[in-house]
């Protein structure tokens, strides 16, 4: 096993990440504006941008889900508790002692266990909660005549707002995490260049060197 600079984020993955970041930023700003927390933009503009960004994000997600399942990369997000304790101990204790992050990226495990679990929860809990409630919200006028529609709408709004608060919390923690371990820059660069330090088995290295030399530096 040895550390190598390996391309772990493909072009699509990087495009996905950064466009998703931009869209979520727009959605958070306009969404909390619609909720009445600020009035930086008019309600009409906020609705237009919020809806537009949401529909674009849904389209992006459709592509990314297809990509995850056709490239087998979904396996990076299978939850595991192996190594979880080490990561938790590091963030709550070791980090203050100047210890080294215990996790090494593997070719088929580019996220540490805590990261993988967090992203999985984001993908299967928070994101579905926000887009399902969001579509229900958007198409309210298509179901306004069902019994108790206003009460349902209130429930939909509740779920949507709660998910928004949770996603905002995620964003703060996510960005803060970039400052831990390596430098902020070192954390961000892989999502720009695609390359990061990965612990490769000799077989993986041999395979990459021979068959996919552009994936390894």
């Amino acid at each position: 096993m040895a550390l190598h600079q390996v391309k772990i984020f493909s072009g699509f993955e990087r495009f996905w990440h950064w466009s998703q970041m931009l869209l979520i930023l727009i959605l958070l700003i306009t969404g909390f504006g619609l909720h009445g927390f600020h009035s930086l933009v008019s309600f009409e503009t906020a609705v237009t941008w919020h809806t537009g960004a949401a529909l674009a994000l849904l389209l992006l997600w459709a592509f990314s889900i297809f990509w995850l399942f056709t490239t087998r990369t979904w396996r990076h997000f299978i939850p595991t508790i192996t190594g979880m304790w080490g990561v938790l101990r590091y963030y709550s204790y070791g980090i203050f002692k100047g210890e080294r992050h215990p996790y090494r990226k593997a070719y088929w495990r580019k996220h540490n266990p805590l990261q993988a679990l967090a992203y999985l929860m984001l993908k299967i809990v928070l994101f579905p909660a926000i887009w399902i409630s969001g579509l229900a919200y958007l198409f309210y006028f298509a179901w306004r005549n069902i019994p108790n529609a206003p009460a349902w709408l209130e429930g939909v709004a509740l779920v949507h707002t709660a998910a928004a608060f949770a996603i905002l919390t995620f964003v703060f923690v996510h960005v803060y995490m970039l400052t831990t371990g390596h430098s902020f820059r070192e954390h961000v660069m892989p999502m720009i260049t695609g390359f990061d330090e990965v612990d490769l088995t000799p077989e993986e290295e041999a395979y990459l060197r021979k068959d996919e030399p552009e994936q390894i530096r």
């Binding site: 009445g36 309600f43 509740l158 709660a162 608060f165």
Partner: peptide, 22 residues
């Protein structure tokens, strides 16, 4: 009355809890 109006209406507790969490 009788309708949840986005922007006008909110769940006070959700806003308080959400703000506290953030």
């Amino acid at each position: 009355k009788g309708v949840y109006l986005p922007g006008r209406d909110r769940n006070r507790w959700l806003d308080i809890i959400g703000t506290l969490i953030v």
